[in-house]
């Protein structure tokens, strides 16, 4: 490939290859290498960063402001760290309306307050019209580790939990682009996952926020790291009514749609029951469900399998380049 294509940024296989061959190989060091959602630094600190280019910048259920805080906060939470400080870098296109910018800044403030993080440094750049699309935002987050993900302790029989209905952010963004003569009640699930932090003390072995590539991609990537295959039941995966209608119309697979306020958790059988009880009490995760388990009978190592409603088995592949770019 001589030029960078949009597919490199899609979160799929090409992006994995790019990170492995062009980033890790060049900058190789022991903090980078594990490729967690955050890097584990000395003194019990975790550091993560993310850039936000979502189009449109305002969408049902959130905007680029709430997204740029929650996304980075969530990367810390699923790495076992309590988010504390954020940096905020704005790249603004000349001509954006001041009220829009103020609205975004207010969203950032609200989201930061909600997660208990402070924005402690930042940067502002304005570029000539056409050199950016309204506004891009980068945030970096520092958190204090309260635990460490322990994928090496995951064993057959351990349960896979999803914290709520999937696909809402991805669909809300697709629909907000207004291409489909469609209207929908679907709203982005964009929200902080800080309420999951106590679960690190309740036996969670591994967590991951379900973003680009959706549930299927997260499961497939987890399976890649484990010695045992994963099996989830289609019937048990929570989907909202509006999502079920909309994905039928669009002919898309909800398991590949992004979320911005949901996580996948793996825990031992007993702990999983406790965790589910805790999640169900919280309004943000009332529809949490155990959707499957780590296997030693069905499938081969490296595989994430779905038992369909019809009783068939199918492989969950990571997202390929088909879904639309710039959802976060």
């Amino acid at each position: 490939m001589k030029q960078i294509s949009l597919e490199i940024g899609s979160g799929g296989r090409l992006m994995q290859e790019f990170i492995r061959d062009k980033i890790v190989r060049v900058f190789n060091n022991r903090y980078l290498k594990p490729l967690h959602d955050a890097a584990f630094l000395p003194e019990g600190l975790a550091l993560t960063t993310d850039s936000y280019t979502v189009d449109p910048i305002f969408f049902p259920g959130g905007d680029i402001g709430s997204l740029c805080v929650n996304g980075t906060v969530n990367d810390l939470v699923v790495s076992g760290a309590r988010p504390e400080f954020l940096s905020l870098a704005l790249i603004i296109e000349e001509g954006i309306d001041m009220p829009d910018l103020e609205k975004i800044l207010l969203s950032i403030k609200k989201a930061a307050t909600r997660s208990g993080v402070k924005i402690v440094t930042g940067d502002t750049k304005v570029v000539p019209r056409g050199q950016a699309d309204r506004i891009y935002i980068n945030t970096a987050g520092v958190g204090r580790l309260i635990s460490r993900p322990q994928p090496e302790r995951i064993n057959p029989g351990d349960k896979i939990i999803v914290t709520g209905p999937v696909g809402e952010h991805g669909l809300a963004i697709m629909l907000a682009r207004n291409n489909f003569r469609m209207s929908s009640k679907v709203r982005s699930d964009c929200a902080p996952l800080t309420f999951l932090l106590p679960l690190w003390k309740k036996g969670a072995l591994w967590m991951r926020d379900i973003t680009r590539g959706g549930l299927a991609t997260v499961l497939s990537e987890l399976a890649d790291r484990l010695k045992h295959p994963l099996l989830v039941e289609e019937e048990k995966i929570p989907l909202s009514r509006a999502i079920r209608g909309a994905v039928e119309i669009l002919g898309i697979d909800p398991l590949y749609l992004a979320c911005e306020g949901r996580a996948l958790i793996v825990a031992g059988e007993k702990e999983a029951a406790q965790i589910l009880k805790y999640l169900k009490k919280n309004p943000a995760s009332r529809q949490a469900a155990i959707i499957g388990e780590v296997q030693d009978r069905i499938g081969r190592p490296g595989e994430a399998l779905l038992r369909t409603r019809s009783g068939g088995l199918r492989l969950l592949e990571p997202l390929t380049s088909e879904l639309l770019p710039r959802i976060c």
């Binding site: 489909f180 003569r181 469609m182 209207s183 929908s184 009640k185 679907v186 009514r241 509006a242 079920r244 209608g245 909309a246 039928e248 119309i249």
Partner: peptide, 9 residues
């Protein structure tokens, strides 16, 4: 046309 709360024209 309504599909469980999502409508199309």
């Amino acid at each position: 046309v309504d599909y469980m709360g999502t409508t199309v024209v």
